[in-house]
Design a protein around this nucleic acid. Structure first.
Lengths: 335, 335
DNA sequence: CTGTTAGCGCCTTCAT
DNA sequence: ATGAAGGCGCTAACAG
């Protein structure tokens, strides 16, 4: 039942070397022999042993997908996009999650596990520390990052400054001038890169328009619904004159909407809220947001990685844009 | 830099066989030798080549995770739980998604890819057809299913009949008697197994109490927010006397809440709504639901698979229970 | 308890 | 265009 290359070779009346070449599409095989070998292999149900070919060739045709979580919206979509792109190219995806500990912020990452097991590694969504990256680099495989970049490595991700600019432009276009910003806790690993960059972008966009960015206009609780809810309360306690809120994620934005409701404020009549991401429920709750496509980012990163493996040149950075989708949560301010 | 087993053997003054035994914790190695070998291996940064040991031993220490999606709540959590459990046992997870086509319902699954690449396969959340399962079986690996079971194979999943019973018991306990049920489309692959079983459970629980189960009390649109919203409209159009709705998922339940709002009905004053799953946003929107833990299901299934691989006996079925969490979306009926 | 010796199944020069 | 033969790095009998 478990036929090997010799069985195919014998049945096709050629040597194992020819079978190997024929099946892998290498040159120097007559088309007729190649066809015959293919047919025989097919009939015998032959599939080359991955271990044997990896051992002999040094290539695994497998990519490591490194991520802290798979069950969060952004990560799940990136992984799905990457896996599909890899499979389309005949590559396998080895899923490798690692624990993340806050306080002290620390990542439990053992690069040894990946050793000789993959041809490249995709790091999804977490800013690693220098030592951690060095550990990965020591493996000697090409690396591509999705989300938080790292100097000297290819990275694909959202243009966070532009996201903030779009949000602020949308709100100011409606007439808002006192616009709060909600982000995650500074040492929340989830928040780190996108959170910091979106806040920087918000600040720059506000300043460019001569609008206020004082401390009372920003809040940093958790990067989730509960955090957004707590943040909006903090914001409105400090600055009751806020008429609009830009949240760094849809989950926080939904939390902000709920927080407004807690205070008897209506969205968008009293407070406008805009988020980032494009999660499904936001569509049904009428959340205005800046939609991004993490699946596409994952697929793009995977493709870049495969090109790096073949030695092809790839851009050091691929920037994705978010798209404004206006729903019911933003409107002109009251007066 | 890339030291092999012979380097370790030489440096430790033993044979490669001893190194292999020592490092893998096999018996018949003096503790002192084992320690010395360990130290040398550590110093040299030696990690056995997975391809080489797989080729020689026939074991890959890798498990295939087969799933149609990774970006859906249930699936993402199962995968995450399974991967963590596998990693804890020193196993790797090979993520393998496959396309699912509706109409004609068909699964694009090529078992050949998994050939000799894994020691076992975890099938997550999709009822495969007989031929597809036969294809997997032909690989000769142990199989464990999460969610929809398959005769003759180990399966872990929720007790869907009990979920329905708990929902109906909760609602009737509050005084409801006309209770609608919302499920996915019958040929929606996502809905298939849990949807069908929860509906059967709803019907049985209602009948047991002498309550109505006529066709007007069930609706089957998509297994998502939009589907739940459409379904509740259909339900209330047909039976305006409905006072409570049991939705087979939290997403559909949230859709039902929105649908009620569309009609100017209040939840829970006019209509009570209960869901199943325990998604995060439901907590903040005050959705009463039956909470399940898919991560635990994934971890349990992974552990069972590892035991099957070692030849240990495992139960043919592990049943998880859901827990009722009362929040604000259910209350006694109006009068 | 430890070493020797064959493979595991395929790829890859090097000939032809 | 094809074949022969030597590894790839490790494990598993079998000796000792």
């Amino acid at each position: 039942m478990a036929h090997g290359i010799v069985d195919v070779a014998r049945a096709a009346g050629v040597s194992t070397a020819t079978v190997s070449r024929a099946l892998r599409g290498l040159p120097n095989v007559t088309e007729s022999t190649r066809e015959r070998v293919r047919r025989v292999a097919e009939e015998l149900g032959y599939v080359a042993s991955p271990s044997a070919s990896s051992l002999a060739s040094g290539q695994t045709r497998t990519i490591g997908l490194l991520t802290p979580w798979v069950s969060q919206w952004f990560f799940a979509h990136v992984l799905e996009g990457a896996e599909r792109a890899l499979r389309a190219e005949g590559f396998n995806a080895l899923l490798h999650t690692f624990e993340v500990a806050h306080r002290p912020r620390r990542v439990e990452l053992d690069p040894g596990t990946l050793r000789r097991r993959v041809d490249g590694v995709l790091v999804v969504g977490l800013p690693l520390e220098r030592a951690e990256i060095a550990g990965l680099d020591a493996l000697g495989y090409p690396l591509v990052f999705v989300g938080p970049g790292t100097p000297g490595h290819a990275v694909v991700g959202l243009d966070d400054e532009d996201v903030a600019e779009q949000a602020v432009a949308h709100l100011t276009g409606l007439g808002h001038r006192v616009i709060g910003h909600i982000s995650g806790e500074p040492d929340d690993v989830l928040a780190w890169s996108p959170g910091v960059r979106r806040e920087r972008g918000w600040r720059a966009s506000m300043r460019r328009r001569g609008l206020p960015t004082d401390p009372g206009l920003t809040a940093h609780e958790g990067f989730d619904v509960a955090g957004g809810r707590a943040s909006v309360h903090r914001l409105l306690d400090a600055r009751p004159d806020i008429t609009a809120v830009f949240a760094a994620s849809d989950e926080m934005a939904l939390g902000a909407v709920l927080g407004c409701r807690d205070r008897g404020l209506r969205v968008p009549e009293d407070v406008s809220v805009i988020g980032v991401d494009g999660i499904e429920i936001g569509e049904h709750l009428g959340l205005t947001t800046l939609v991004q496509d993490p699946g596409d980012q994952g697929a793009t990163a995977a493709t870049m990685l495969l090109e790096l493996i073949t030695g092809a040149p790839v851009p050091s950075e691929v920037v994705f844009e978010a798209t404004l989708v206006e729903r019911g949560s933003t409107a002109p301010p009251r007066d």
